[in-house]
């Protein structure tokens, strides 16, 4: 069923890994870009992701349709986002603290309600085979692309366009850069932020559904290895740009595939080191992209970390 491809296995596995592993990063970070552009940080997306994974898997199993699962995950995520948005609109409430609380609540609830769904097998999301032109099973496997990944890539472009060229995008940016200016224009910042956070939550929920319904494709309590948290950091070094989020997500997916891929070609010592690659990468990129002037270029000025 295969040819021996030697060291080529590493770049192919990293390409495959980038496509397979990046989708949750992509969705969570796209959602967070929208939320942060409105001037709020939602750190609770890790919890939303895990809850979305559980809700998506449970609904897909009960209805027999993976797409209903994705929808359920998006709805559940939107509810979490809505709660975050509403709570943060109260006076003197810190969005970071609420985020952490919701992260714990989301994972806790997901574990609690997810108990009966660890064992059953739910239907998977469909994949498109883009590797038909190759004879190598490795290439074919690497290019088995899930529809959500493609949807995410299109969404990244769409959101970038939306932010730059549409009225909604302008409204978001005004609210994110100056509440006072927004109010002067007759916009209610709180309402915009609540909607932006709910949208971010919905996308994080979809990211979770990808985890449980496609890759690795089953619900268990260890399903997320911190993707939700890493994705929030990813937004910062993507400089709040949806297009950059797409590439950053790919980079992280590839870095995560490095450890197993190297072991599979016989580079076996020091695998703990390779597994740290995504985190080393985060640090490296943050250091490289740090600005001497102290201001974060592209950061929404209403964001609590830039104030």
């Amino acid at each position: 069923m295969n040819g021996d491809i030697g060291l080529w296995a590493v770049p192919i596995a990293m390409l495959g890994g980038a496509i397979r592993v990046s989708t949750p990063f992509l969705f969570v970070s796209l959602g967070e870009v929208i939320t942060e552009r409105s001037g709020r940080i939602n750190l609770g997306l890790e919890g939303t992701l895990v809850f979305g994974a559980m809700a998506g898997y449970a609904l897909a199993y009960m209805t027999g349709s993976a797409w209903i699962g994705v929808l359920a995950a998006a709805l559940a995520g939107a509810v979490f986002g809505l709660v975050h948005g509403l709570l943060c609109s109260l006076p003197k409430v810190n969005d970071i603290a609420i985020g952490i609380a919701l992260m714990l609540l989301g994972t806790g609830l997901a574990f609690f309600f997810g108990k009966p769904f660890i064992q059953p097998v739910a239907p998977d999301l469909p994949a498109i085979n883009l590797g038909w032109w190759s004879d190598l099973p490795q290439v074919q496997a690497a290019l088995r692309v899930n529809v959500l990944f493609i949807f995410g890539a299109v969404l990244a472009v769409g959101l970038a366009w939306m932010l730059k060229r549409t009225r909604i995008g302008l409204t978001l940016r005004v609210v994110g850069d100056s509440s006072d200016a927004a109010r002067a224009l007759g916009i209610q910042p709180a309402r915009v932020r609540i909607l932006a956070t709910a949208f971010g939550g919905a996308l994080a929920g979809i990211g979770g559904a990808y985890l449980s319904l496609f890759y690795p494709g089953s619900w268990n309590e260890g399903i997320s290895s911190g993707q939700g948290l890493i994705a929030v950091a990813l937004v910062i070094f993507a400089r709040w740009s949806p297009i950059n989020c797409f590439f950053a997500a790919l980079l992280f997916g590839a870095a995560g595939a490095l450890g197993p891929a190297l072991q599979s070609v016989g580079v076996t010592t020091g695998y703990y080191l390779f597994y740290a690659a995504p985190f080393v990468l985060t640090l490296a990129v943050l250091i490289l992209s740090s600005s001497k002037s102290g201001a974060l270029t592209g950061a929404p000025r209403e964001l609590s970390i830039t104030k």
């Binding site: 295969n2 296995a9 192919i12 596995a13 495959g16 890994g17 397979r20 592993v21 099973p137 490795q138 496997a141 690497a142 985890l211 890759y215 690795p216 494709g217 089953s218 268990n220 309590e221 260890g222 399903i223 290895s225 993707q227 995560g256 595939a257 450890g259 197993p260 891929a261 072991q263 599979s264 070609v265 695998y271 703990y272 597994y275």
Partner: peptide, 22 residues
């Protein structure tokens, strides 16, 4: 292929794919 963790779904899936690729 060692994943380094008793339970880490994404890494286990990646390791399995890497084995199949190899």
């Amino acid at each position: 292929i060692f994943t380094g963790e008793w339970s880490m779904a994404v890494k286990e899936a990646e390791a399995t794919n890497a084995l199949a690729d190899a």
